[in-house]
C-alpha cells in the first residue's frame, strides 16, 4: 500500500516537473510582453503596452506577419489542391509500382526542403528568375510538402468506399464533377488536416525564406524575429517576446477554428 502511494507520488512529481518544463516558456511568452524591461525570468507583469507601441513603430514587424500569412495560405491552397488531385488518382487508378513511387516521393521530399538541396534549389530559383519572389518561395515550399500530403490524403481516400463515386459515375458525372461533388466533401476533414499542417509548417519555416528572400519587405515573421536586436547586439527581449506572442496567436486560433469546424482525423500512413 505504501509502495503504491509512494509510486503515485513519484509519478505525479515527475509529471509536474515535466509540465513545468514546458509551461515556463509559455508563461514567459504571455507575461513578458506586458512587462517593462523584461528579462529571462518569468515575472508578474506590470501590464504596460509600451512594448506593443514599440513594435508598431518597427518598420518590418507587422508587415512580416502579413507576409507569413501570404506565404502559408498560398502554400496551403496549392498543397491541398494538388495533393487532393494526386491522392485521388493514386488511390483509384491501378498503376504498376504505385506504392514504390509513393515511398520514393516521401523519401525525396525530406531532401527537397532539407539542407542537402539548398544550393541546387537556390541556383534553380536564380535561373527561373524566382529568387526574391514570394510566389517562387510558395512553389518551392509546396513541392517540399506535397509528397507527405499526398501520402496522408491517399490514406483518407483509400478508406472512403468506392461505391459513392461509382454511383455518381453511373449517373453520368465526369471525373472532375465526382471529385468536386463526392470525393472532396467526403474527405473534407482530411483536407482540413493537410491545410493546417501546411500552414503550421510554412509559418515556422525559417531556412527557406531566409535563403530565397533577400528583400526585407518580403520576409516573413520567422525571418524578422531573427533581426530583433538592440543596438548593443543583445537580443531585444521586449520586442522578441511581444513579436513572439503576436506570431503565435494566429496559429493557435487556426487550430481552434479548424478543430471545431471539421474535427481532426489523422491516420497518417497507418492502415486500419
Amino acid at each position: 500500500m505504501t509502495r503504491f502511494v509512494l509510486g503515485r507520488i513519484g509519478f505525479y512529481t515527475l509529471i509536474a516537473v515535466l509540465l513545468a518544463f514546458f509551461t515556463v516558456p509559455l508563461l514567459w511568452l504571455v507575461t513578458a510582453p506586458f512587462t517593462s524591461d523584461p528579462t529571462y525570468e518569468v515575472r508578474v507583469p506590470d501590464f504596460t503596452w509600451d512594448n506593443f507601441a514599440a513594435l508598431l513603430e518597427h518598420p518590418y514587424a507587422l508587415p512580416s506577419l502579413w507576409n507569413s500569412v501570404v506565404l502559408s495560405a498560398g502554400t496551403a491552397v496549392l498543397v491541398v489542391i494538388f495533393a487532393a488531385l494526386a491522392a485521388y488518382a493514386l488511390s483509384r487508378v491501378r498503376l504498376p509500382g504505385r506504392d514504390a513511387l509513393l515511398y520514393a516521393l516521401l523519401l525525396l521530399s525530406s531532401i527537397i526542403t532539407g539542407t542537402a538541396a539548398m544550393v541546387p534549389l537556390f541556383q534553380l530559383a536564380v535561373e527561373l528568375n524566382l529568387i526574391d519572389s514570394q510566389f517562387g518561395l510558395i512553389l518551392i515550399l509546396t513541392g517540399g510538402l506535397l509528397p507527405a500530403a499526398i501520402f496522408m490524403l491517399k490514406d483518407f481516400m483509400d478508406s472512403t468506399p468506392k461505391s459513392y463515386e461509382e454511383s455518381a459515375r453511373v449517373f453520368g458525372a465526369s471525373p472532375l464533377q465526382i471529385v468536386r461533388d463526392v470525393v472532396v466533401p467526403l474527405v473534407r476533414p482530411g483536407l482540413a488536416t493537410i491545410a493546417v499542417w501546411a500552414v503550421a509548417n510554412v509559418w515556422g519555416n525559417f531556412l527557406m525564406p531566409y535563403l530565397l528572400l533577400s528583400d526585407v519587405e518580403k520576409q516573413p515573421a520567422a525571418v524578422i524575429t531573427y533581426t530583433l536586436y538592440t543596438e548593443g547586439g543583445q537580443a531585444n527581449l521586449s520586442m522578441l517576446s511581444t513579436f513572439g506572442l503576436l506570431y503565435s496567436i494566429p496559429v493557435v486560433l487556426m487550430y481552434l477554428f479548424v478543430s471545431k469546424k471539421y474535427g481532426f482525423r489523422f491516420h497518417g500512413g497507418i492502415k486500419r
Binding site: 461505391s163 461509382e166 459515375r169 453511373v170 453520368g172
Partner: peptide, 28 residues
C-alpha cells in the same frame, strides 16, 4: 457508364452522406 442510360442501386445504397435526401434524389 454515364452514357448507357441505366441507373443502379448499390448493395450499400451509396447515398451521399454529406447531402440531404432532396439533394441525393436530385443529384442525377
Amino acid at each position: 457508364p454515364g452514357a448507357r442510360d441505366v441507373a443502379m442501386v448499390f448493395q450499400d445504397y451509396a447515398l451521399f452522406p454529406h447531402m440531404d435526401v432532396t439533394d441525393n434524389i436530385a443529384y442525377p
